[in-house]
């Protein structure tokens, strides 16, 4: 299929392990079809590098349909690039123009140590979930699913918060590298539902403490996280988290 192509210049962060000094390297990206995704564009550049017997750019990716949360880079200063509510794998090259220079950097946060090039270690987010991001129920013995009616609005509210894909863009976008939007999404999802209520206050306290322990910064209402979240998670969730947190403080 013949489609429009563009030529670009990439400036890509190259760094091997966090203890070495990184640098921006310049690579041409030629004859890029505008129907490609951003990651497919990087694939093409990597194939070229490999054919020149140079080491390709390491980047995390997996599902390539915007749901696994594995991909992500700061593109021209914006987490996942400039398109609203879009993961990097769903950012398509039709949103760029011929001759553009694109700067590509990894997520930068103390809690996300760099592994290589654009790959960072986000295991801190798993630690935060392990601190309390669940309802304590073992398999077996649950009552019939329809024994607990939940109004459609409440289910919807829970769903909207549960849509978080854990990509870390909120942290990368935040000047304080805070994970408040991530934490609040899980706290708010579970606190909205009757099943999650009994543990709601304890959960909020435990997850916020773990967030602090992992080296994430504090929230100072910059709202950059909401602007960059590929799933459109609202900062209303942070307000809900604060409510649960205060309850746990004063209860």
């Amino acid at each position: 299929m013949i489609s429009k192509t563009i030529n670009l210049t990439l400036k890509v962060w190259r760094q091997n392990r966090s203890d070495k000094i990184g640098r921006l390297e310049t690579y041409p990206a030629k004859d890029i079809s505008v129907d490609m995704s951003f990651l497919e564009m990087l694939d093409v550049v990597n194939e070229d590098l490999t054919r020149q017997k140079k080491e390709p750019i390491a980047f995390d990716h997996d599902c390539r349909e915007g749901i696994c949360g594995m991909c992500g880079a700061v593109v021209n200063g914006r987490a996942h690039g400039h398109e609203k509510e879009t993961t990097l794998c769903q950012l398509h090259m039709r949103h760029f123009s011929d001759g553009d220079t694109i700067v590509i950097e990894p997520w930068r946060a103390r809690a996300f140590p760099l592994i290589k090039d654009l790959v960072v270690d986000r295991s801190a987010l798993d630690k935060v979930i392990a601190a309390g991001g669940y309802i304590s129920v073992n398999a077996g013995g649950a009552p019939d699913a329809n024994s607990l009616p939940i109004s459609r609005d409440v289910a919807e509210k829970a769903f909207n918060a549960a849509a978080c894909i854990g990509c870390g863009a909120c942290v990368a976008a935040c000047p304080n590298a805070s994970a408040m939007l991530f934490v609040s999404a899980k706290v708010s999802h579970l606190a909205a539902l009757p099943q999650g209520k009994p543990e709601a206050a304890r959960r909020a306290m435990a997850m916020v403490r773990q967030m602090d322990a992992c080296g994430f910064g504090n929230c100072s209402n910059e709202t950059e996280c909401e602007a960059e979240c590929p799933k459109g998670i609202s900062i209303i969730e942070i307000a809900r988290l604060n409510r649960e947190y205060f309850k746990s403080e004063f209860a």
């Binding site: 129920v137 649950a142 329809n146 289910a155 829970a158 099943q195």
Partner: peptide, 22 residues
């Protein structure tokens, strides 16, 4: 059937109708 029961207990936000049922 057990799966749906367990998943609801875990807090999976399944789609519901206006009566609150699945």
């Amino acid at each position: 059937c057990n799966i749906i029961d367990h998943c609801v207990a875990q807090g999976i936000p399944f789609a519901r109708d206006y009566g609150g049922l699945l």
